[in-house]
Amino acid sequence: MITVRHSDQRGLANFGWLNSKHSFSFGHYYDPQHMGFSVLRVINDDIVTVGAGFNTHGHKDMEIISYVLEGAIEHKDSEGNVHILSAGEFQIMSAGSGIYHSEYNVSPTEHLKFLQIWIKPNSLGNKPSYAQKDFGKQQGLTTIATPTGEDGTLLIKQDTKLHQLILKPDSKLSIDIATNRKIYLHQINGTLSVDDVELNAGDGAKIDNIRTLNLANRGQEKVTALIFDLP
Rank of each mutant, 00 (worst) to 15 (best):
K172R: 06
I183K: 06
T224K: 11
D176W: 00
G219E: 04
G190P: 08
D208F: 12
I210Y: 07
I166C: 03
L226R: 04
I227S: 12
F135S: 12
L192S: 05
I207W: 01
V197F: 07
V223F: 08
I183E: 09
T146F: 10
S193I: 01
I177G: 06
A145M: 05
D170F: 03
R211A: 14
T143L: 11
T191S: 13
K161T: 14
T146H: 11
V223N: 13
I144S: 09
T148D: 14
N200C: 10
K172Y: 03
E221R: 07
D134T: 06
D134V: 09
T143Q: 15
N209C: 03
D134E: 07
T160W: 01
L165G: 02
P147D: 07
T142V: 15
I207V: 14
T148R: 13
E198K: 13
D196L: 09
V197E: 11
A216F: 04
L165Y: 02
T142M: 10
R218D: 13
N214D: 07
Q187K: 01
Q220N: 13
T160L: 15
K206C: 08
S171E: 06
D159G: 04
D195E: 14
D159C: 03
N214I: 09
L155D: 02
T142I: 13
V223P: 10
D134N: 15
T142D: 05
L213G: 02
A216W: 00
G190K: 03
H163G: 02
I210M: 10
S174I: 05
N209D: 11
I156P: 13
G202D: 05
R218Q: 10
D196E: 14
G152Q: 08
A201W: 01
N209G: 00
N214E: 04
Q164E: 13
L199T: 09
K206L: 08
K206D: 12
R211Y: 06
D203G: 06
L199G: 07
N217P: 09
K222Y: 03
R211D: 15
Q139V: 12
K222V: 15
A145N: 05
T142K: 02
L199V: 03
R218I: 05
V223I: 14
T153H: 10
L213Q: 02
T179W: 01
Q187F: 04
I144Q: 11
T153G: 03
I227Y: 05
I227G: 05
S193C: 04
D195A: 04
G140Q: 08
I183D: 01
L173T: 01
A205T: 02
N180Q: 13
I166Q: 12
D208K: 12
L185V: 11
T160A: 10
Q164N: 07
Q139P: 02
A205F: 02
Q220V: 11
T146C: 10
K182N: 12
I166D: 01
T191K: 14
T160D: 02
G202H: 06
N214W: 00
T146R: 09
L215F: 09
T143K: 15
Y184L: 08
T212C: 08
N189V: 07
I227V: 15
A178D: 12
I175M: 11
K182T: 05
T148P: 04
G152L: 10
V197D: 01
T153L: 13
V194F: 00
N180C: 01
E150P: 00
S174G: 03
